[in-house]
Design a protein around this nucleic acid. Structure first.
Lengths: 198, 198
DNA sequence: CTCGGGTAAATTACCGATGGGTCACATGGT
DNA sequence: ACCATGTGACCCATCGGTAATTTACCCGAG
């Protein structure tokens, strides 16, 4: 496939492009299931170029984490500030849907359950998860204290469940590409109301 | 480390032992993140012995799937038949907690999101997930039709969410080893009631 | 009781393929 | 001419998997 030499693509553009395919690959096959060579191949470039831009495999994953992390945090924060202090859950979901409609595997990058447990990669992931959790947690807290429960571990657990529930929705969405973001929001609205009257 | 020759351990025992450590490893690091050599090392034996009992890495994972799948399906089925047609969710959770209290990574083996997408491994996993889902689905169906919604895709989605919620609880439990099964059940009871009055 | 010998339980040493990562070099634009 | 962009070829550790071989147990013949 072709010789060396620039192809008229700037570094910044190339980085964005690489991160795009890396997010998709990592999101579907997980950290351990993806090889840098595969990312390079799918991006139509060679492996050393990837290494020259992101130093290591962890570096590449880290870039993906920062990309999707910033995207999601911003979106959720905006949705939260937009909707005063009323029922957050659905607004949050809608914000997420709209943000990652074209990158449906983004969420899975932040929530890969099998990351290498050491190093700054885990730290970065934890930071972003933490920020998302902190925002989603307000609703959870209202719910629990409103029901008279105040065990902090309960709050922690509910938070984890909420985040995994979102993960479930995102994965289901990946498997049903015909669904639009709006349809997903409507669907989740029905689910939430149904959960209300159990 | 030692010579060859039998160490007085029967094949059946050794298989059980290997599966035990394999479940733990696969459950924590995922399919792609675990090497057969690592399993052998942690079991205190050599790699070829693993291959002589389970033919391939997929065979080993398959054995794990069958072990934990049978365990979980039996447990949930028993819980279901025990508790008539009343509120299933909590009983199901309690059954799962009690069953895997000593194998807390079991659930993750069935719900590794990054399995190789081809071959009989995926099929076996899908079968077991399907059986668990079918049982858990009764409750979901009641919930949705009770609220006037009957889109089959909604049912599918709610099911996925339910299974991932369980996954979340199981992972949280893995990170909090001091919690007993009974405490977990109580915790989930509080969460469920809180969800009722949102 | 003991002394083989067959068989089940193990190991060491190895193979080809792939993975992460590097080096030296080639090209294109200004 | 120079620097950013880009590549083919290579290195070494590890991975999935196999071959050849060694050791312990069991059981029947003397």
């Amino acid at each position: 496939m072709g010789k060396a030499g620039t192809k008229g693509v700037s570094r910044a553009d190339r980085e964005r492009q690489i991160i795009d395919v890396a997010v998709e690959e990592f999101g579907t096959h997980g950290y351990a299931g993806v090889s840098v060579a595969a990312v390079a191949r799918r991006a139509g470039i060679s492996k050393p170029l990837v290494y020259s831009y992101f130093d290591t495999k962890d570096g590449l994953y880290l870039a993906c984490v920062h990309r999707v992390g910033a995207l999601l945090v911003d979106a959720v924060a905006a949705a939260r500030s937009r909707s005063g202090s009323t029922d957050h859950a659905l607004d949050t979901l809608h914000a997420i849907f709209a943000t990652v409609e074209r990158h449906r595997h983004a969420w899975s990058v932040l929530y890969d359950p099998a990351l290498p447990p050491d190093g700054e990669l885990r730290d970065a992931v934890r930071r972003f998860r933490g920020r998302l959790a902190a925002m989603g947690a307000a609703g959870a807290a209202r719910l629990l204290t409103g029901a008279g429960h105040d065990d902090p571990l309960d709050h922690q657990l509910l938070n984890e469940v909420w985040q995994y529930a979102v993960t479930a929705v995102m994965r289901w969405w990946s498997d049903h590409p015909d669904q639009s973001a709006a349809e997903m929001t409507a669907r989740c609205a029905r689910l939430l109301t149904a959960l209300g009257n159990d």
